[in-house]
Design a protein around this nucleic acid. Structure first.
Length: 113
DNA sequence: GGTTTGACCATAA
DNA sequence: CTTATGGCCAAAC
């Protein structure tokens, strides 16, 4: 397998992982990358989400490691993301950040006992 | 086909 | 806190 990113499995895995994040929780690009087995490829998580065309994936629950929104607001997507998160109970502070320590999603450990 | 850009991140100074 | 550096690699130019 020479193109692990281009391979359909990567994006698919990203979407499935993000789908697991419940209302009221958020996660980071790096966490999603690690969850699908590619810890250094946070950028590609963002790229995969940018290419999203599926309403079933709660892409708005993915933010950067500072707890802020990483999208340029050219298309109003960042505004939509913040609105959706606030509608789900997330609170943004004066710097536009949420409390990651309290709302960061944790996938179940699958590394065994 | 080389260079730049980008919904990122870790580390160091 | 800010800057700089390096990693990562698909798109866009």
């Amino acid at each position: 397998m020479r193109d692990p990113i281009q391979h359909p499995g990567f994006r698919q895995a990203v979407y499935e992982a993000v789908r697991e994040v419940l209302v009221g929780w958020v996660t980071t690009y790096g966490d999603v990358a690690a969850a699908v087995g590619h810890p250094r490829r946070a950028r590609h998580v963002g790229w995969a989400l940018a290419a999203l065309d599926d309403d079933g994936v709660p892409w708005h629950r993915v933010i950067n490691r500072l707890g802020s929104i990483s999208i340029a607001d050219d298309t109003g997507r960042a505004t939509l993301q913040r609105a959706r998160l606030e509608a789900e109970g997330l609170v943004f502070d004066a710097r536009g950040r949420v409390d990651l320590a309290r709302h960061r999603w944790r996938w179940p450990d699958r590394l065994g006992p």
